[in-house]
Design a protein around this nucleic acid. Structure first.
Lengths: 329, 329
DNA sequence: CTGAAAGCGCTTACAG
DNA sequence: CTGAAAGCGCTTACAG
């Protein structure tokens, strides 16, 4: 392999000079620069990032921790992150917890060992060991999707999104509204969205029956099962609408309703959250909320880059959202 | 930062010994090992991968070059890759060409500079500079999706998939079958799938009218436009079915057909390729072909790992596929 | 404008 | 079973 020493010899300069022209810093005479550049061209020399990184303590790599790699949300967010960091010459090191919370901590340490310059975590929960690990890492750090105390966080406005959606359903005249959610380990999706829904119902003077609530695990199938359960346990007093906390689960729920011969929205209105592409093309098209995931990713990357430049602007940013009214309500 | 030297001092051994216990090679007395491990625990010591990689010339990182990061196919493939490499302690460095072919070469060199141990390229085209760059890199290399001469390639069976699908449409009694494809820069999707379709039609003694063919760019919108064009230029002699080379474009096409009041499949049958999740939930559900993208990713990773172990098994592997019959035909 | 030298944190023959 | 020493390929004060 060609190294900086080879280049130096061939260009008849010291490796200090080669380093200077490559990094474009310090004084170098035009003639020296030219000779070096030419040799670099000829040899196709590629500097070793490991050596550079060992020396400078910077790697040009951003670590990203995902709950699940092959997910629409994740890929949008990563797309957004990549768009901004790649412009600055950074690469992304991807890491996938496959929804195992312990792995978040493991990966933080692993990314640390790889000298990443910063980490973006798509958070799905918050717990003390995690916060501790983040603190220990002493690295620029962004949390996306959950508010982590003491960490710059970008959050979706889950509460108000749920409020708006519920209000909209109520305005359509529905009073008997079922709820399909996820577990409360997830403060954003499991707690905040539910609270938005419940608060709004309460304000409207409506009590949500216990057996109008069901819980899934983000999968389409679990939406199907949740819907089934709600329908089956309410033969007498069926709801006329259902608020679902994600598009995928809503799509599963629709699947069940269609199978059972329900007309949507006449017999049962339904809504999702997330603006999956599918939501637009399914029949009927699904009323949902766009969280602008890609923008959130870009925003996260920008904040991280800011931190890298020493602007320690620890803060919480709430993304805005957009309610997309379609045919399912 | 804690380094191996700190650990050595604290454990009262040389750093050679520390290295030995950390990497679990060479003889170390039980007592020395214990002391080292304890200090490592206490300090939370994390070895520097840059230093290690500089020394060993291995980084434990696999570079992946994607045509587009936020795509269902890409994320499935990456999921598959990750599943196998992470088990072996490798990380993935992601890179996104955003469909700019030149960037493939740029990224190969970049990954090289980062001392990745191997590269997996989701190929969308084949050209000489690319082949040259791969050769130059002198790195374990896998091409996925296109056959690259001289490079271990995993390809989908585009030709036979298209043949099977076309045969199936013909068996349903259709004779006037339109075609929506992509450009021929893409040998797999643009050329092979078309050839499978055309050959089968020819064998059935049917000529495909020139204006029954239209071309898009993989996007849903382009499918919509292509369908529109075919319908508009064939008011007199309309096809009764349309073969589309990707699910997304097929979904766009369906959108247009529905808007225009066509009943699917009665007035127009339609098929896709790719088994996007959406294909299952759209109405009517789309007949398509599952390429098992995730398996392809895992397979690619396995082959790469084999190459890393020196088994230089340069070969071409053709993935199998499965025709999924649903309601759109 | 230029270069010699130190040092980043590891691993690995080599010698004992 | 253990350690001293060399060296991986860079960058960066420092001196000129």
């Amino acid at each position: 392999m060609t190294t900086i020493n080879d280049i130096a010899k061939m260009a008849n300069v010291s490796r200090t000079t080669v380093s200077r022209v490559l990094n474009n810093n310090g004084y170098v005479s035009e003639s020296a620069r030219k000779r070096v550049m030419q040799v670099v061209e000829e040899t196709g020399y590629i500097p070793s990032v490991s050596a550079k990184s060992l020396r400078t303590k910077r790697s040009g790599v951003i670590g990203v921790i995902l709950p699940k790699i092959s997910t629409e949300t994740a890929s949008r967010v990563v797309g957004g992150i990549n768009e901004v960091v790649s412009k600055e010459g950074f690469q992304i090191l991807l890491t996938d917890t496959e929804l195992h919370h312990e792995k978040e901590i493991e990966y933080i340490r692993l990314l640390q060992s790889r000298h990443v310059d910063g980490i973006i975590l798509l958070a799905t929960n918050v717990n003390d060991p995690l916060l501790h690990a983040i603190e220990e890492a002493k690295l620029p750090f962004i949390s996306l999707g959950q508010e982590l105390p003491g960490v710059t966080s970008i959050v979706y406005d889950d509460y108000h999104a749920a409020v708006d959606m519920t209000t909209m359903i109520l305005q359509k005249g529905h009073k008997k509204i079922a709820y399909i959610g996820v577990g409360e380990e997830d403060p954003a999706v499991g707690v905040l969205r539910k609270k938005g829904f419940m608060d709004t119902m309460k304000k409207a003077g409506i009590t949500v029956e216990e057996n109008w609530c069901s819980y899934g695990d983000f999968s389409i199938e679990s939406g199907y099962e949740s819907m089934k359960q709600i329908i089956n346990s309410n033969r007498e007093n069926s709801p006329t609408a259902v608020f679902v906390v994600t598009d995928r689960m809503a799509i599963g729920a629709m699947e069940y309703l269609k199978e059972q011969g329900f007309r949507i929205p006449e017999d049962m209105a339904i809504t999702g959250i997330g603006a999956a592409v599918m939501s637009k093309y399914i029949t009927p098209s699904l009323t949902t909320i766009d969280y602008f995931n890609k923008d959130a990713g870009s925003k996260a990357a920008e904040l991280l880059l800011e931190q890298l430049q020493g602007k320690n602007t620890r803060k919480k940013i709430t993304q805005n959202y957009r309610l997309i009214k379609r045919d399912s309500v």
